[in-house]
Nucleic acid binder design. Sequence first.
RNA 1: GGCCCGUUCGUCUAGGGGUUAGGACGUUAGAUUUUCAUUCUAGAAACAGGGGUUCGAUUCCCCUACGGGCUACCA
Length: 508
Amino acid sequence: MSSERKVRVRFAPSPTGGLHLGGVRTALFNYLYARKHQGDFILRVEDTDQTRFVAGAEEYINECLAWCGLTPDESPLKGGTFGPYRQSERKPSYRQFAEQLIEKGYAYYAFDTAAELEEQRKDQPNFRYSQENRLNLRNSLSLSKEETQELLLAGIPHTIRIKVPTDETVSFTDMIRGQVSFDTNLIDDKVLLKADGMPTYHLAVVVDDKAMEISHVFRGEEWLPSAPIHILLWEYLGWNEHMPKWAHLPLILKPDGNGKLSKRDGDRLGFPVYAMNWKDTQSDTMTKGFREMGFLPEAFVNMLGVLGWNDGTEKELFSLEELIEKFSVERISKAGAKFDFEKAKWFNHEWIKKTSNEALLPQIKDVLATHKVENVSDHYISEVLSTVKERLTFISDFWEQASFFFVQPDNYDLTAVKPKWSVEKMSFFQEVNVEFSKFDSWDASALETFFKGAIQASGMKMGELMMPFRIMLVGGKFGPDVFQIVSLLGKEEVIARVDKALIAFSAE
RNA sequence: GGCCCGUUCGUCUAGGGGUUAGGACGUUAGAUUUUCAUUCUAGAAACAGGGGUUCGAUUCCCCUACGGGCUACCA
């Protein structure tokens, strides 16, 4: 948080509830650019539209960013020298700028009510409030000065609209797309200040970005069509030399059909779309998040970082620090990217493998706790984790992959044992169990040698006894190497499990 | 409808006037693991179409098609 910094970048979500993948990626690219250039990363909340404001959303956004490691230097909760960081708290300043534009002839009062305009649109589907028809509508351009004053003094509700010029071209350089041009005749006179005195996004971003000395704007491609409005505003307000550089990020698209990825797609296709669980108190619905699903923040950030960006090499696994180091705007692709949950899972798998047991331990303990497993030593959990780590896609898979290390199997896959079960096998295991009890050092390879030797001595086949042994220990045909399991479980436990299973196997 | 942006394997992408068009996810087949998963190896799989420019175009230009976005007193 230092105002001398040249690069100041902001992430400005609207607190409608939940933080979408696309939102996090926008935040990430903002963050990467800021850090890459030793600049500031700012969180501003755009809550001008009260009807869409959701309580608790601000804290939620903060938590999401913190989880991803994208902690803002300035934010509504943290403060900073350019506050306030909530748009709704900046209300007084907006009107002043809108009126300044009117004085300069770049904007005007419009008295048409929402209902009247609605009526117009009914008749003409292509209706636009623009230079073509603004003189036929009720505003300070078509009305006389006196009439306008009268209406204003009478307190008639009105908006302030930008007066878009005729026959001009607005062009600008987008850091991702290059030169982009718009014909002003095709741009409508957007509302700048609403009848309730609140600014629209168009006025607010420009005023706020100027006030907060924002140097670079990274936002979704959906904002490209309104960029000319913003550029006009920067010029009209006389701030041309402070205008930020623009970068319109490609969108994240639905995996199957067409269109932007939405919350509904996640529900429909069975994957999260929000960074963290979001509980909508109004509808009392819970939307699942990546965090709660068992994603590591490193994997989540990595996945988003390379969705529409790469460093030009074949490297795909990046930590946040590496992303900062390698990041360059020029390498952001122009086309939208369909979200692929399979690949997202792969990233998580890779990151689980990369992460140390110590770092994973707290989350593993949480998983165990949900299954009422407590009072297990960290050392033991860590040992178990080492044996099953590479089998995990999500942290929550730990239970499925390793529950038998903590609780005895209750059910056995008897169909795999029973048909070939025999008195010989029964007595083999009884004898082996006796031998087990005589072991002093409980070492995996020594046990393996012993067990295999015993099988040979019995004259039975290896496979006929290995499989039942496995099932005795874990309950089914799965899991890591048998003797690794044996050694981890410990002498007492193995003997107990064999005894227990023997009863189950011989029962009818 | 209008405007803007885009288009390389199914998906994410690398590449770039002359390449066997590379990688990853997924998929298929083998190997390993006397289980399952992992892992390893191999395979199938792409330059939207049509015109130019050029000795040569997937790469540059134009058109078409397709996809996406925007077209609110939402952001």
